[in-house]
Design a protein around this nucleic acid. Structure first.
Length: 682
DNA sequence: GAAATTTCATCATG
DNA sequence: CCATGATGAAATTT
């Protein structure tokens, strides 16, 4: 497969996916168009509801199975839980000239995304105090772009090599960053407009201004305008490249942007009957939101209720469901053995909506029947079994972690070496867990929650840059500290970093503003329950019991800070030094929305002095020291100043680069040379 | 809790 | 037969 021709800027992409031969695309054209194929369902026309004490679902299903097979002769719907990656041999298919279209689409997106990254394009900085909206939205007179409809061609992607996985992971991360940062900036712009008393007040029922109010929808729309939604050219069956079991999401729109689930509200996503090759609808994913009273979710076994038949206002069934649309699609997917992606919603206050969506992996529909729901009306039910051999479910990890916070021994009776290696020095306890071997190494180090800077570096450096601000309330645009940050604060009101910068200035001890000032974030310390744990793959590692939202602060990199001279002496006898200039500037990626708004490029930041100091972690260290290395990391380093203003000695603050679900290992890019990386596991 | 908002499937029409 | 537009549904979100 050649990709060059389709990706003009492929120099930066040169076969990033490790050339395509490691990718299998299994097309599913076995669904041949049959003019008169009917579902192998017992009902046509009016649906015979089981009389109250009548048939059990199983009995009714048995009747369904006994019914003559449909003319399309789908394979028998035996619960085949083996994960057969190849459903139809590729050789048996008619040659498909467009076989690599999926890859090409990825490369097209990649070139869109990457062309703007790291180019260092710099325009003039906004004047201090200026508050231009970050996102200029198309006015009412703008041309409405025609958007490509989503394809209906079913395809399965399997056998991704390691390089491909990293490549797609980065691509997905890039899209998610664009979405999330766009949303954050739109919200900030709204607040500004509101505080300035401009028209178009956000909120419903408002007057004449027809502004769209929901930032998630606006962000998604802006991305759609640039054709930045993923997976629109093929309908992927099974797992999505770049999305792992356990991943967390906060918005339905996010799922649409990624193509994981294309319905804005509906719980069943499917290829429509009219557009499918066989003329039958085929379901590919569902969302278990907990809103249907007749659902019965036991985790690995799930009884899912079809959609429809509800009163739009009350959350109650009011008429019988029909075997059509998504309901029929689920039945057809069962008949064809099509696996279904399952996304579950869980209540959580960490999410902006009070709700989090976890991708829980692939299931197969093994049974379905028409039942009488709690409301007394007919509902379709689908029994689904999780396919074995997948990573643990996101919702399961979430529940385990929640339980661990309450009652450790109920979940892990043994293995904890310490419940708080910080001995109370951190805001929250940092546990130490090892159920793998006898290593107790982290107990040997003094725990240092804050780095100790050399006095020569810090003394007399408090007032540099004009000192602190004089705000008596929370800081706002125009104050001294805002100016130091180039006119805008780095965080939104919830403490999410809006965009990575070479250096972020938080308000410090010399500012008058209260501790509640939104420009004080990383200085407040740990906000997530972290745990150092032993793993066979990565040695010591770190994970969180709390769901970590992308862009939030996690922890600081602590230790004894050495000047360049000091570090040269120490380095002679064994290397236990962390060098800040080794970290690749991953902060560049966070907050980069140049794909959507090329105008919003990095302002002309003042050049940072070279960072020649080192952090000695040989005696004293904190939890950050145990982060594993990855070249596709989920956290990054942002330099921050607050207690002193010597730009040569910033704090190394670690932020989340993506939503990190509970119990997933945190990983950082140490910028290690390849030979080292080879020794570690990726 | 109701209203606003989007996408998609479906159906009708040309 | 394909393209286009209108319509209604949807386990959302604020």
């Amino acid at each position: 497969m050649e990709v060059e021709e389709s990706s003009p800027s492929s120099s930066s992409l040169s076969s990033p996916a490790g050339s395509s031969d490691s990718i299998d695309l299994n097309f599913l054209p076995f669904l041949k168009r049959e003019p008169k194929s009917e579902p192998a369902s017992p009902e046509r026309g009016p649906l015979p509801l089981p009389a109250p004490p009548a048939q059990t679902p199983q009995q009714q299903h048995a009747a369904a199975a006994a019914a003559p097979a449909a003319s399309a002769a789908p394979p028998p719907a035996t619960p085949d839980m083996s994960f057969a990656p190849v459903m139809t041999p590729l050789q048996a298919l008619p040659p498909n000239p467009d076989e690599d279209a999926l890859l090409r689409e990825y490369y097209r997106l990649a070139s869109l995304y990457l062309s703007s990254a790291g180019t260092g394009a710099i325009v003039s900085a906004p004047a201090p105090g200026a508050a231009a909206p970050a996102v200029v939205q198309p006015g009412s007179g703008s041309v409405v772009k025609k958007r490509r409809p989503r394809s209906s061609e079913l395809v399965r992607v399997s056998s991704l090599g390691v390089r491909d996985q990293i490549y797609f992971r980065d691509l997905v991360r890039r899209a998610r960053i664009t979405f999330e940062c766009l949303r954050g900036l739109l919200l900030r712009d709204d607040e500004r407009a509101e505080s300035l008393g401009l028209g178009g007040v956000a909120g419903y029922g408002g007057g004449g201004d027809r502004r769209r109010v929901r930032a998630d929808l606006r962000a998604a729309a802006l991305m759609a305008d640039q054709d930045l939604w993923l997976n629109r050219d093929r309908r992927i069956v099974g797992s999505m490249p770049g999305i792992s079991v356990g991943d967390a999401f906060f918005f339905r729109m996010e799922l649409c942007v990624l193509g994981l689930h294309g319905q804005v509200q509906a719980g069943i996503d499917y290829v429509s009957a009219g557009r499918s090759a066989s003329g039958e609808p085929i379901a590919t994913s569902i969302i278990v939101s907990g809103g249907y009273e007749d659902d019965d979710d036991r985790g690995e076994v799930l009884v899912y209720t079809g959609h429809g038949g509800r009163d739009p206002n009350l959350h109650k069934q009011c008429v019988d469901q029909k075997l059509e649309g998504g309901n029929l699609a689920l039945e057809r997917s069962m008949a064809y053995g099509i696996e279904i992606r399952v996304i579950r919603a869980v209540k959580s206050r960490r999410g902006p909506v009070g709700k989090v969506y976890f991708y829980d992996g692939l299931y197969k529909v093994v049974d379905y029947w028409l039942d009488r729901g709690k409301s007394g009306f007919g509902v379709y039910k689908y029994k689904m079994l999780r396919i074995e051999g997948q990573e643990p479910m996101g919702t399961v990890n979430y529940r385990i972690a929640e339980q661990l916070k309450v009652d450790v021994f109920a979940v892990r009776p043994t293995g904890y070496l310490s419940f708080d290696i910080s001995m109370g020095r951190e805001l929250l306890p940092v546990a130490l867990y090892n159920d793998v071997d006898d290593d107790r190494d982290p107990l040997l180090f003094e725990y240092l929650a804050r780095p100790i800077f050399p006095t020569s570096a810090v003394q007399g450096k408090f007032a540099e840059g004009g000192g602190g601000c004089d705000c008596s309330e929370n800081c706002s645009i125009g104050c001294n500290c805002a100016g130091r940050n180039g006119g805008e604060f780095a965080y939104d009101k919830t403490g999410v970093l809006l965009r990575g910068k070479p250096l972020v200035y938080e308000c410090g001890p010399h500012c008058r503003c209260p501790p509640s000032c939104p420009n004080r974030v990383s200085q407040k310390g740990l906000q997530h329950r972290l745990e150092v744990f032993r793993s066979r793959e990565t040695g010591w590692g770190v994970r969180s019991l709390d769901l970590i939202k992308a862009g939030t602060f996690i922890c600081e990199f602590s230790g004894i800070v050495l000047t360049q001279q000091q570090s040269e002496i120490v380095a002679a006898n064994g290397d236990c030094l962390v060098r800040p200039n080794r970290f690749p500037p991953r902060w560049l990626d966070w907050g980069d929305i140049s794909d959507v708004n090329p105008e919003y490029v990095a302002p002309d930041y003042p050049a940072l002095p070279e960072l020649n100091f080192a952090i000695d972690v040989s005696r004293a260290r904190n939890v950050a020291c145990y982060f594993s290395h990855s070249c596709s990391p989920n956290v990054f380093v942002q330099f921050v100043l607050f207690d002193h203003y010597n730009a040569s000695y910033p704090h190394l603050m670690i932020f989340a680069m993506e939503n990190i679900p509970p119990l997933r290992e945190l990983s950082i890019d140490y910028g290690m040379v390849d030979e080292w990386v080879g020794k570690l596991t990726m």
